[in-house]
Design a binder for these strands. Structure first.
Lengths: 203, 203, 203, 203
DNA sequence: AATGAATGAGGCTTCATTCAT
DNA sequence: GATGAATGAAGCCTCATTCAT
């Protein structure tokens, strides 16, 4: 029994140190494009050595992926906690998602990165797939509540795509401030929500 | 007059050489992620020296941008030529755009790149803005024809976003072949088109 | 008395654990170039921790050296057991040695390593010297029996050199299989034996 | 014609710079084990940038190989120039070779390195094979003159092996000075020469 | 205008060894 | 005595860009 507790403690310590590294990386990513952040910087910022990073992650890509997956999980959890009793409305969901993306530009930077060529191990691919499915389930539920009951899975893919596309297309509209961007993307999110809602009514 | 002709010739030669470089780059990008293509490779493939590349482009980014802008212009022209007399239907437009993106993966790779951190000169930003506006005009026209007459500019932004998002989100769905991807993204394009169409009817 | 037995037991356990480590290392070396084997791998393969390795060896070099010395001792013992009553003939000796080297490529890899720059402690140097002398005695005996009685010590050095050189020079003849190598090196061993034999007769 | 001269000049310049790099590397290798010499050091010592090294060599291994091949060629040429009219005697050849090895410890360090695991491209392997054959021809000729006319190719392999083995086995005899080593290895070379000579007479 | 050799900062990663538990 | 996480120096190599010819 004592032994089990010791192992547990070790695991907890390991997890917490991994979290320190992860959070340090996030910290840096919130300020700079993640592709320009170096291992050295992450290590220094986390207060550990370079080697320690590699004790917790096979390579930089795995660390990036961890950040990415954590983001998706966070979004999923936040969605679960939005409407305690009933699922969020389409508009709530869209606005929330776009707000999250505005607050976490690293997230869609990484999405682009991994989707457009970032090499991933089969293991990582599987994990990503699972976590993504959980998020898609929430989207599907919201669509279902909004009255879209045919093709709901495919439509949730379309909705997810549309929202991601907003940020990809307008996250850096030339000459606009961060606030302008936020306002514009939220507006587009509202339009997307409206379009999907109307479509539900029409059909 | 003779002088003018000589200058013209020079300009023509210059333009054609620039085109050779551009096409060579495109050639390479059709096979590999553009971020992994080096100046040396482009030069060798174009049959010119590295230095020549820099005689025609300030730096690699400008060349990338040229490729990108040419793509947008090409899309715009193709849209213009689709329906000789009447603008394309929403579904036609969406399917066409997604088909183009499937055929030119470099295009949305570059879109992501420039939107998510690629540094651009003010000059380049302006040019991009102009060319993008022309494309957006075509989208707006199609939406207008489909019955979306309120907020049509904003809605065309939303449509553009949604289509881009399809590729970003599903261009590399794990374990799917190129053909699967094409089928899935076209399906999503159809759903998007349908949703926008329904919305037009509903309102 | 009980105490002595306990100490003995401890020593036996210590020796056996050291042997486990040594054998694990040998196991790995039989498959891969010893210079590419890491402490971590040896530890894992031996089923002990990295730290334990360092409880038994001052550093990796000492472990390598231990493997090397054990090899030389093994060769010496095998030579002793070859001809129970009379020493082996020159050809027998040469063939045996080359066969051993073919079977234990790590041995001459290490010989090269230590001879060509591997740092050794004075203590280790002394140990190596002793063990090497024992082997050289066997060679000298064989040469003596073959009729080489002048300069026999020096000649045994020459013979030893010649045999080692065979492996260094032809252990990786380009495009040859392991079997080809074995056949070629054994042939050269036979020639060397013959040359030394003839020389004995001639003088 | 002018053009050809220009190209020639360029090639000459290229060759000479390559030689500068090569000589700088050799310079360093004469003082330190080549495996501990870094690209940075070679570059600094040659007065060029690191990148320049890689303009002339694909990687460090290729540079090492170039040093090695140059050594073999040098030996071959020196052998050719030894006896203007008649080939060198066996003893001359052996002594010369061992002297060369004593003067160029990098040579047999590299021989060991490449023979015992250093990865080589097929192209490099071929080049090495060719150059080695030229050297072996000289050895064979000397053996032939010494009266060894049966199996002369195989015997030249054996002689080559034996000489290499001398250095591998005794280049670092514990507690001996460089001069001691030189004397001892030359002695062994003489014995080897004698043995092969006697053998020729006996048969 | 065309050439292409030279540049060199800086990236990621490895791995023997230590030492607190 | 056993453990194994932490350390961090150091290695090789890439590649956009410049500039003398």
């Amino acid at each position: 029994m004592a032994k089990i507790r010791l192992e547990d403690l070790k695991q907890i310590e390991r997890d917490s140190r991994r979290k320190i590294i992860l959070d340090s990386a996030l910290d840096l990513f919130s300020v700079r494009d993640f592709r320009s952040v170096t291992v050295r910087e992450i290590a220094r910022h986390a207060g550990v050595s370079i080697g320690t990073i590699y004790n917790y992650y096979l390579n930089l890509t795995e660390l990036f992926l961890d950040v990415f997956l954590n983001n998706i999980e966070e979004i999923t959890h936040m969605l679960d906690n939005m409407g305690k009793d009933k699922p969020p409305s389409l508009e709530q969901l869209c606005k929330f998602y776009i707000t999250y993306l505005n607050d976490n530009m690293t997230f869609y930077q990484m999405m682009s990165h991994f989707m457009l060529g970032g090499e991933m191990s089969p293991d990582a691919t599987q994990k990503l797939d699972d976590i993504m499915k959980a998020l898609m389930n929430r989207m599907e539920t919201a669509l279902y509540s909004a009255g879209i009951q045919n093709n709901s899975r495919l439509t949730s893919h379309a909705l997810f795509s549309a929202l991601n596309g907003i940020m990809i297309s307008y996250a850096r509209y030339p000459g606009k401030s961060d606030d302008d961007i936020r306002r514009h993307t939220l507006l587009l999110a509202k339009i997307i929500a409206g379009v999907f809602n109307d479509s539900a009514c029409a059909s």
